[in-house]
């Protein structure tokens, strides 16, 4: 390609890339802005604040002008939190200036974290995600092993059943699941968030493909050495399938972490809310505290963004492969 062509491609990619990250950048900037500035409509891409200030040789103070009286002015002095520190102070006019300064309100993160039990929400999400993941790894390894390496009646039929269950989207079985879980007495318990998700068909599918690719000779050799079927799974198949298991785990964690509609419906009490549900209630209850909402959004997405950056090769790689296989 020509140099001009390469440049045009690069520019277009940059514009698209910018469109993807601008909401996140703006979120983080707004998260460290003061709510007062945001409400004033000061919403650019830097946390700049415009203040009327009084400057003398000791320090600069934020003020508001009350009344001009000849050479001097009556003003209110403010502290950093925006509260009036001293009212009706008389100061000389030459000390009063308009100043723009960059100010980062890190305390917004702490404030947001303390306004709702976010620690609890994170804990609940981690517990649910980890238990679900462990369950999925066990049920999927067992099922995929049977599908991939055992001969039995109804293999294809059962696999078709599994796949067709995968095709049914969540909104369809949400209401009857609620009825069912209610009858089991599981509404408003961890059980409702974990047990129905312990069979993950995509993981079974992924593992089955991989288990099938393991050469037969390996199994034959192990069998001759007197290894039982379960022993083969545990000692040979699982250890050599670590990369696939890691990929499956990443996808399971992302799904659990981001799942929203299900826990929104199944959980009523505040102590059991998972992060997404807690965040949604927080956003309803504190809809005017914009900067704190941005701070809460930031720390809510951080764990997954970090996981993604660490594991992006696996994640992007398997999305690409899934698309290829299906397409």
């Amino acid at each position: 390609m020509t140099k001009v062509g390469k440049f045009v491609v690069f520019m277009l990619l940059s514009i698209f890339g910018l469109a993807m990250v601008v909401p996140f950048v703006w979120m983080m900037v707004t998260a460290v802005r003061s709510q007062l500035e945001f409400n004033k409509g000061n919403v650019g891409f830097l946390p700049l604040e415009k203040h009327t200030m009084f400057v003398d040789n000791e320090e600069d103070t934020i003020i508001s002008i009350v009344m001009v009286d000849g050479d001097s002015t009556y003003v209110h002095f403010y502290d950093e939190e925006g509260h009036i520190e001293r009212a009706f102070v008389k100061v000389p006019n030459e000390g009063i200036v308009e100043r723009t300064r960059l100010r980062i309100h890190w305390e917004n993160f702490i404030d947001a974290w303390n306004r709702a039990p976010f620690g609890r929400y994170f804990m609940n999400t981690i517990i649910v995600s980890i238990l679900t993941l462990l369950g999925i790894l066990v049920t999927s390894s067992l099922a995929a092993y049977a599908f991939a390496q055992m001969k039995f009646k109804g293999n294809n039929l059962l696999f078709t059943f599994f796949i067709s269950m995968m095709m049914v989207p969540q909104p369809i079985y949400l209401i009857p699941s609620y009825v069912l879980l209610n009858n089991l007495g599981w509404i408003d318990t961890y059980m409702a968030l974990i047990v129905p998700w312990l069979a993950h068909i995509f993981t079974i599918f992924l593992l089955r493909q991989h288990f099938k690719s393991i050469p037969r000779e390996l199994f034959d050799a192990a069998e001759i050495d007197g290894c039982s079927r379960f022993g083969i799974l545990w000692r040979i198949v699982i250890p050599i399938s670590k990369p696939v298991l890691v990929t499956a785990s990443i996808f399971s964690l992302i799904a659990s972490w981001n799942s929203f509609m299900w826990p929104l419906v199944m959980i009523n009490s505040e102590e059991l809310r998972v992060l997404q549900v807690g965040l949604s209630y927080f956003s309803q209850e504190s809809s005017t505290l914009t900067t704190l909402l941005m701070a809460a959004s930031t720390f809510s997405i951080m764990p997954l963004v970090i996981l993604f950056i660490v594991a992006q090769r696996q994640i992007i790689g398997s999305v690409a492969r899934a698309g290829l296989k299906e397409g």
Binding site: L13, F16, G17, M20, V21, P23, F24, W26, M27, T30, I254, W257, N258, F260, Q276, L279, S280, S283, T290, L293, M294, A296, S297, S300, I301, L304, V305, L307, F308, I309, Q312, I315, I316
Partner: peptide, 22 residues
Amino acid sequence: FRTVYFIPTVTSMVAVSIVWRT
């Protein structure tokens, strides 16, 4: 670029909806 384009996919709809609402 590939990484940047993929980030919206892994972030939760709840959080990004709050951002977009703002």
